[in-house]
C-alpha cells in the first residue's frame, strides 16, 4: 500500500517535470548569449536589451494588454449581469440563449475564428482592435457567466430574504449581499478571461487587421519564419506576468474562501 502511493507520487512528479521542462528551457535560453539556440554561449542579458529596443514588439505587448483587459472587463460586465438577471427574468427561449452564449468555449477555436472572419467581412466591420475585442469577449463571457452562476447557486437563498426582512429593497439586497458574495467569482472569471485572451492565437489570427499585432500573433509568425532569441526573453517576461496573474487568482480565492467554508457548513 505504502509502495503504491510512493509510485503514484513519483508518477505525478515525473509528469509535472515534463510539463515544466520546456518552460525552464525557454527561460534558461533567454540568457544564452549565443544566437544559435543549440549552443550555449554563456550568460547574458543581451536579448532582453534588444527586446527593449524592438518597437514592434513593444506595440504588440501594448495591443495584447489593451485587448485582454478590454475583453475581460466587457465579459465581466455582460456575464455578471446576465448570470444575476437570468434566474429572475421571464423571457421565452432564455435557456436556448443561455446555451448558445456558452458555445464559443465549446466549439473548436478554428471554427470560431472562421465564422468571425466571414461574418465581420459580411457586416463590413474594419478588421483591427474592434474585431479582436468582439471575438475575445465572445469566448470570455462564458467563463465569467459560468463561474458567477455556480457561485450564485451556492449562496443560501435565505441570506437575501434576511436582508429584505431587515428592510432592504431588491436593489439594496443586490449591492449589500449578492454582489460582495459573488465578487470572488467575478474576479476569477475576469482573470481567467484575461489569461485566455492573452494566450489566444487561433482566433486572433483570423480577425486581426493588417496593422494590429498581438503578442501571440507576433510570436507565431516568428516561430514560423525565423526565430531570434529575443523570443526567449519575451517569453520569459510573459511567464513572469502569467505567474503573477496565477498567484493573484489564488489570493482572491483565499479571500473568498472563509465565506465559502461558512456557506458550505450552513448548507448541511
Amino acid at each position: 500500500m505504502k509502495n503504491n502511493t510512493r509510485l503514484a507520487n513519483i508518477y505525478l512528479g515525473f509528469i509535472l517535470a515534463l510539463m515544466y521542462l520546456p518552460i525552464i528551457i525557454v527561460i534558461v535560453y533567454s540568457f544564452n548569449s549565443s544566437k544559435i539556440s543549440s549552443v550555449w554561449g554563456g550568460f547574458s542579458f543581451k536579448w532582453y536589451k534588444e527586446l527593449l529596443r524592438d518597437k514592434s514588439m513593444f506595440d504588440a505587448v501594448v495591443n495584447s494588454l489593451i485587448l485582454a483587459s478590454t475583453s475581460s472587463i466587457l465579459a465581466a460586465i455582460i456575464g455578471t449581469l446576465a448570470a444575476v438577471g437570468m434566474p429572475k427574468v421571464n423571457l421565452p427561449g432564455k435557456g436556448v440563449v443561455e446555451y448558445l452564449s456558452t458555445l464559443p468555449i465549446m466549439i473548436p477555436e478554428i471554427i470560431l475564428g472562421m465564422v468571425f472572419l466571414t461574418y465581420f467581412s459580411l457586416i463590413r466591420l474594419p478588421f483591427g482592435m474592434l474585431t479582436l475585442v468582439i471575438a475575445h469577449t465572445s469566448f470570455c463571457i462564458p467563463y465569467v457567466y459560468m463561474l458567477v452562476k455556480a457561485r450564485l447557486v451556492g449562496i443560501d437563498k435565505s441570506l437575501a430574504e434576511a436582508a429584505k426582512d431587515l428592510g432592504a429593497s431588491e436593489i439594496r439586497v443586490f449591492f449589500d449581499i449578492t454582489l460582495p458574495l459573488i465578487l470572488p467569482a467575478i474576479l476569477s472569471g475576469m482573470l481567467l478571461s484575461f489569461a485566455m485572451s492573452l494566450d489566444d492565437v487561433v482566433i486572433s489570427i483570423f480577425v486581426t487587421g493588417v496593422n494590429t499585432n498581438t503578442l501571440p500573433i507576433k510570436i507565431y509568425t516568428q516561430l514560423r519564419t525565423g526565430v531570434t532569441p529575443k523570443i526567449n526573453a519575451l517569453s520569459t517576461l510573459m511567464l513572469g506576468a502569467n505567474l503573477l496573474i496565477c498567484l493573484l487568482s489564488v489570493w482572491i480565492g483565499k479571500q473568498g474562501s472563509h465565506h465559502k467554508e461558512y456557506l458550505e457548513m450552513e448548507g448541511n
Binding site: 509535472l16 510539463m19 515544466y20 521542462l21 520546456p22 518552460i23 525552464i24 528551457i25 525557454v26 535560453y29 539556440s37 543549440s38 489569461a195 492573452l198 494566450d199 492565437v201 503578442l215 501571440p216 510570436i219 507565431y220 516561430l223 526565430v227 523570443i231 526567449n232 517569453s235 510573459m238 511567464l239 502569467n242 505567474l243 496573474i245 496565477c246 489564488v250
Partner: peptide
C-alpha cells in the same frame, strides 16, 4: 496551482520550448 501555471502560460511559448528540445542537434 502547479498545473495551472503552465496551463495559463501562452501555449506558443511552451511549444517553443519543445522546438528547442526537438531541433536537429538540439537538446
Amino acid at each position: 496551482l502547479l498545473i495551472f501555471i503552465p496551463f495559463w502560460t501562452s501555449s506558443l511559448i511552451r511549444l517553443y520550448g519543445w522546438i528547442i528540445i526537438f531541433r536537429a542537434n538540439g537538446i
